[in-house]
Design a protein around this nucleic acid. Structure first.
Length: 235
DNA sequence: GCGACAG
DNA sequence: ATCTTGTCGC
């Protein structure tokens, strides 16, 4: 019942749902004065399976050390369609987040926030659905255009769509492809970039995403191994 | 009509 | 995202 809005009857209904919920996105800072924990979420799946594996990881915001983790498995209820990504990945992600012993002060998502055709990417959807402050942090662009950015770590370039700044291309490591950061919910674009850069001191991707990615792949491999016929040990 | 298209 | 083998480098 509470998940009805996550499983629209068809594509048109899903898009209408996005237009409706997009009005609820808070684009300014409305998060704790002191951020103590930051969470990462990610999803993985096997091509010939309808099973989605999602993970939520809670990191200490000061040290970036892992404090808690949660992994869940759930059947896919929606196909992957660019622009309707959240209807596929949000259900398992929300379940994983709910399994954490405590709610995070901030969540960094693996996907877009406002940098979306209807200004309602995964990060916005998760934020509005949970009320948590969220940031969109994607590896590639979905919409908008941007100019070349500098090579140093921390260089940025505005991502523009229909004359509106919907995000920022942010270089987290010198000379390495930038990430695409956008507002999810209750976090301004400047603050979002600040936290993504802060969480990515060593690698291109923030530690939150890296930790969640590692967990889902580990769980996926366990699933695949358990599903395959036991290999004969030829000795 | 022809590309582009988060994960 | 997933599939897929080796290769180059710290």
């Amino acid at each position: 019942m509470p998940n009805d809005f996550l499983s629209p009857a068809d594509q048109a209904a899903a898009e209408q749902q996005q237009r409706l919920l997009a009005a609820q996105v808070v684009r300014h800072d409305q998060l704790p004065t002191t951020i103590r924990t930051v969470a990462g979420v990610d999803v993985a799946y096997a091509q010939h399976s309808d099973q989605l594996v999602a993970a939520a990881v809670l990191l200490d915001a000061a040290t970036l050390e892992i404090r808690h983790t949660a992994v869940v498995r759930l059947g896919a209820a929606f196909p992957y369609i660019p622009g309707l990504f959240s209807f596929r990945e949000l259900p398992p992600i929300q379940q994983a987040l709910a399994q954490l012993p405590e709610a995070p002060d901030l969540v960094i998502c693996d996907g877009q926030g406002l940098a979306h055709p209807r200004r309602f990417g995964l990060a916005c959807h998760l934020g509005v659905a949970t009320g948590l402050p969220t940031i969109g942090c994607a590896k590639t662009r979905l919409v908008g255009s941007y100019h070349a950015l500098g090579h140093p770590r921390g260089s940025t370039a505005e991502l523009v769509l229909d004359g509106e700044v919907v995000g920022q291309a942010l270089r987290t490591q010198p000379g390495i492809n930038p990430l695409f950061v956008s507002i999810g919910h209750r976090v301004s674009l400047a603050t979002a970039c600040h936290w993504v850069l802060r969480c990515a001191p060593t690698y291109r991707q923030p530690e939150t995403t890296r930790a969640a990615d590692h967990l889902v792949n580990q769980e996926l491999h366990r699933l695949l191994a358990a599903a395959l016929p036991p290999a004969p040990d030829g000795m």
